[in-house]
Amino acid sequence: MRLEPRPASSVAASILWPAGAILATVVFSSLLVMIAGASPLTVFWLVLKGAAGSQFAALETLTRATPLIFTGLAVAVAFRAKLWNIGAEAQLYLGAVMTVVIGTGAVTLPSAGLIPLIMIAAMLTGALALLGPAVLKTKFGVDEVVTTLLLNFIVLLFVSMLLEGPLKDPTGLGWPQSKRVIADAQLPRLIKGKRLHFGFILAIISAIVVWVIMKKTTLGYEMRAVGHNAEAARFAGIPVNRVIVKTALLSGGLAALAGFSEVAGLKGNLTLDLSPGYGYTGIVVAMLAMLNPLGVIAAAIFVAGIFVGADAMSRSANVPSYIAEVMVATSLLTMVAAIMLMRYRVRWR
């Protein structure tokens, strides 16, 4: 078996292959659902209803999609330049740390000043977290997959230390959690009494900004050139290492915004379970979106919908909500296969 590049991928192919991927995901998950002893049609209907069947469900899905848009963008930006940032989880937590460091009363400003200040500080923290691996990669050729992945664990332990020490809420009954951010540091809710917050709007704006950067600016051009062919980029005089560092700063900053938005918009304080792996799921989101910043919005809502819907489904049908993770993982694998088949033809001989 060998792969031959296709001369050009047609519009039809770029719709049919991903559609086929989704179909394959549905078929495979149906098998698992049947093994669990339920009817696939009922289960999928319940998942859909749980994800979008009511105002509450839809808002919950968007709330869950918000951090995924940020981490998905972070990964999409980095992967576009072939900087394999697996550390969005760490950058998310560092963004959250900076949010509580500034936002719990250390600085008092009206919210129009305080929130941008926190955002910028959080982004810088996340950016710096990825600067180390980027410099190690460009100067010494250290594999960033390893460094960024391992940093996730280091940062999580660091956060744990902070929550047991300097950032611990003295009124928290001994729980490892930070103080709550002050009112001026909180992002407003979009609808009174609902959980969906202004962070979602920020995420959409970020996606548009990233799209503009990638499409219209010299930086985006450099990132794409470096990602597609670093040797040719270097030959043409593009400062490859500087581009990688800039990419790292942007990517780390975007991931940190996920942490900021979760703390300032939803949770109010920092705990060790702030993120159920949003940094890692961001990789899935970015791949499903084929690294397109606007596609990240749709992919994040899709993935969030499956998780939210599966939670609701598992309450009424007797199928564990783990099916959501299987479905997301399967959709990633089939989508990656579909992307490959879009670009290559398989020849058997």
Binding site: T218, Y221, N229, A232, F235, G237, I238
Partner: peptide
């Protein structure tokens, strides 16, 4: 292929690569 051009980018994107700034 390896050094001269970036195959996955367009003709326009490739011809400006030495002067885009």
């Amino acid at each position: 292929h390896a050094t001269g051009m970036i195959g996955d980018m367009s003709v326009a994107e490739n011809v400006i690569s030495e002067a885009y700034r």
